[in-house]
Design a protein around this nucleic acid. Structure first.
Length: 399
DNA sequence: TCTGGGGTCCTAGGACCC
DNA sequence: TCTGGGGTCCTAGGACCC
């Protein structure tokens, strides 16, 4: 029996959600004018996080630099994001979707899949999808697209058809007519690089890809990727709607500076900030990490990364920072200007047993109390107090 | 025009062990 | 003394997603 899967996708999520909030405060509806959500517009390096449909019609796209968008349209309305509010909107929209089927997989902050196979009770899938779409609009004030299909891949492809506020179907029987004429780039998991390689071999549309001999694809992409391309271009996807929320596998934070850094003191301070952010987040989720990695991006956009495994998992900022400091010289000569500095942790465990040792470093107690205070005071993540930085630096430098 | 931030998964090579 | 093959862990890098 054929399955019925819905994919629900909020239209220009961050922009719509900001619009709803501004409307309630008496502002005009920014969805109807050229507008964008972005980081600090005075920073030359800020990029566009979300754009309204009128803005998109002017050629303004997500991930473009704000400066570029302003050159295209100087009257562009720029608003900043509000992540707490976005979290509320996301939870509200997921809650409504869950009423239609408990077999729900949240795919990102603004997308989810529903397995509707046993939830239609004789009703037409398209009518149920329209009811869901309209309920979200009337109760929360923003629009969504609903893709309806025979599997997750097709549902997701369908939700990407004409926007906003639309229901589209993409059943297996419609693949040839609705999906095959599209360019390969429209296929899920085909990004820029794969598109270029396919182009090199004269494969431009999803239909051409579907009809390409899989053995030929294997020679270009390897066994695994070839199979993936072959199946998805033919509209085949047997994956389930996963209701379990997977545990995080890694945490990371990175900062791009408005001016490239060259002073080792500035770089160290940046490392400190990202270490505080990452360590705070793993403590909040009661994880400890065994692997620390750092990465840098240079002015020419080349990047380097270095990671190493700790002898014991930890959630202590100072120990993570120390490892990061040890690794840094291996990827940075102390002079090359750096555009970005990042820090990540992985190999996470929930192991709570403290590894007590007779020889436990007495400084650990100080580090833990420092972290406790950081967590308690919710210190401004972007601007940890100088004093805190100095005191932690002084201690951990002795290591 | 000049490119953010946060994730996941895959591959490939080297080290090490049996 | 010189030898095979398989498994696992670790690290670096790349591609993709939102």
């Amino acid at each position: 029996m054929e399955r019925v899967i819905f994919h629900i996708d909020v239209n220009s999520a961050f922009l719509s959600w900001t619009a709803v909030k501004m409307l309630s405060e008496g502002h005009q509806d920014i969805r109807l004018i050229p507008s964008v959500v972005s980081g600090d517009p005075s920073d030359r390096r800020s990029i566009i996080t979300a754009a309204s449909i009128p803005a998109k019609k002017l050629g303004i796209k997500t991930a473009q630099p704000v400066s570029m968008a302003l050159r295209k349209y100087p009257n562009l309305l720029i608003v900043s994001g509000d992540w707490e509010w976005y979290g509320k909107c996301s939870r509200g929209f997921i809650e409504i979707c869950r009423k239609y089927s408990p077999v729900l997989q949240q795919f990102s902050i603004d997308e989810c899949f529903l397995d509707m196979t046993f939830r239609l009770y004789g009703k037409e899938p398209v009518e149920v999808a329209a009811a869901l779409k309209d309920e979200i609009h009337s109760s929360l004030g923003f629009t969504v697209n609903v893709g309806v299909g025979s599997n997750k891949l097709l549902a997701k492809m369908a939700s990407d058809f004409e926007k906003p506020d639309k229901v589209h179907t993409l059943w297996s029987s419609e693949v040839e007519r609705k999906m095959w004429p599209l360019g390969v780039r429209d296929l899920l998991w085909v990004g820029k690089k794969t598109e270029q390689r396919l182009m090199d071999y004269g494969i431009r549309t999803i239909g051409q890809l579907a009809k390409t001999d899989i053995n030929y694809l294997e020679r270009i992409f390897g066994e695994r990727s070839a199979l993936q391309l072959h199946l998805s271009s033919n509209g085949i996807d047997s994956s389930e709607v996963e209701t379990e929320v997977p545990e995080a596998k890694s945490y990371s934070a990175e900062r791009t500076f408005s001016k490239d850094l060259t002073d080792p003191k500035d770089v160290d301070r940046a490392l400190f900030k990202v270490a505080c952010i990452v360590a705070h987040r793993i403590r909040k989720d009661s994880f400890k990490a065994s692997c620390v990695s750092i990465f840098v991006k240079r002015t020419d956009f080349t990047t380097s990364q270095k990671q190493s495994t700790l002898t014991q998992p930890t959630d202590i900022t100072a120990l993570i920072l120390n490892e990061a400091r040890r690794l840094l010289p291996e990827i940075w000569d102390g002079e090359t200007p750096l555009r970005q500095v990042g820090l990540g942790v992985s190999r996470l465990t929930h192991d709570t047993a403290e590894q007590m040792s007779l020889f436990e470093d007495p400084r650990l107690e100080y580090y833990r109390s420092w972290d406790k205070e950081y967590d308690r005071k919710k210190l401004d993540k972007e601007d940890p107090r100088t004093l805190a930085y100095e005191s932690l630096s002084k201690h951990s430098a002795d290591h």
